[in-house]
Amino acid sequence: MTDQQSPEQWRERVFAADEDLLARHAELVAVDNVIGLEATVARLQFELKKARERVKELQATVRTRDEEIAAIRTSRTWRVGRVMVRPFSRMRG
């Protein structure tokens, strides 16, 4: 303990909180909340964009497959095959 210090002197160093501090604290918390919401929105927009891109990719794949199926169904091989297996499908009922 130095000469200038007393055991009680620490009490003089305690910060006195006031209304202004509470207001500034509320402002700080509000800024954090806004940034957090903006970040969440940005993340969701990013995920939505990726999801839409994926949907487009999948739709393109489905279109390609549909076209392939249509092409197969119009082919002579398919039609001949259909005629050949028709008796079996009748048997199946």
Partner: peptide
């Protein structure tokens, strides 16, 4: 503990701000 706060006041002196 109060002893800790007393020691902090000794170390930092006028430069110390305590927030409870």
């Amino acid at each position: 503990p109060e002893t800790v706060l007393v020691e902090l006041a000794e170390i930092a002196g006028e430069r110390l701000v305590l927030v409870r």
